[in-house]
């Protein structure tokens, strides 16, 4: 237990030391999204479900904050360790791989949730000012579930990608060619009901779509897809990414860059 908490403590201390970069700056970008899309453009967007666009956007931005930061936290933890070599300390110490995976998962959830929650609070303030109506969370327990599964999934994915990446470029290529498109196409800004059926089908292959809609359902009580499939897909996602992260630690290279 002491070993595990040391690892978690290290993860948290690490991102708190660079809090401007890790927490404040993502919150500022969410703030800008809210301002530009939610408030300015949003007033002219009409969703079929009748939900105001601002309410629709807030859960999406929260997911974006959650997963980007969960991914960033674990991947940059691995990558900085590859530069400095301090992953060697951990690998030399009597620490089972599963501890490393869970500790980084937990670190990812904490940082991701911090950003997502601040984004949510800022969003709620906007919501109140704009629509003179408070945005209540419909299903708090479900929301907690999606915070945990979403955070874990992307923290685990971050470990996998960062351990297997041989250069910094490969890591950033993953972020910009895979993660970013998945986020945008998963429906952070749009509802798939407005898309052509072919694109709707493609969206449904994207696991992020289920996470985003899970968040939306938890907060607004409505989403593009049944809540059951959201729960199932995210749970499967956690299992799969956990296996990927464990595999990478077992087989991956820890040689320095």
């Amino acid at each position: 237990m002491i070993i595990f908490f040391t690892l978690v403590r290290r993860e948290i201390k690490r991102f708190l030391k660079v809090v401007i970069q890790t927490v404040i700056s993502p919150v500022i970008s969410s703030f800008l999204y809210l301002l530009v899309f939610g408030v300015s453009l949003g007033s002219s967007v009409q969703l079929k479900s009748g939900i105001p666009y601002l309410s629709f956007l807030i859960p999406g931005l929260m997911v974006m904050g959650l997963i980007n930061n969960a991914f960033q936290n674990s991947s940059s933890s691995v990558v900085t360790s590859k530069f400095s070599g301090d992953l060697e300390d951990i690998r030399v110490a009597p620490i089972p791989h599963s501890y490393i995976v869970w500790a980084m998962g937990l670190g990812g959830i904490i940082r991701g949730s911090l950003v997502a929650m601040v984004t949510g609070l800022v969003g709620m303030a906007f919501h109140y000012m704009q629509l003179s109506e408070f945005l209540w969370i419909k299903h708090p327990a479900l929301l907690l579930y999606f915070f945990i599964t979403g955070g874990l999934m992307f923290a685990f994915l971050g470990i996998f990608v960062a351990v297997l990446a041989n250069t910094f470029d490969q890591l950033s290529a993953f972020s910009s060619f895979i993660l970013l498109p998945l986020t945008y196409l998963g429906g952070v800004f749009i509802s798939i009901e407005s898309l052509h059926p072919a694109w709707q089908f493609v969206s449904k292959l994207n696991p992020l779509f289920y996470l985003i809609n899970g968040f939306r359902y938890s907060m607004l009580g409505e989403s593009d897809i049944g809540i059951g499939s959201s729960i199932l897909v995210t749970l499967t996602g956690v299992a799969v990414t956990f296996a990927m992260a464990s595999f990478s630690l077992k087989k991956g290279s820890f040689s320095r860059w």
Binding site: F83, S84, G85, D86, E88
Partner: peptide
Amino acid sequence: HQEVINTGF
């Protein structure tokens, strides 16, 4: 280790 580990933070 032969090479110095440079824990930055």
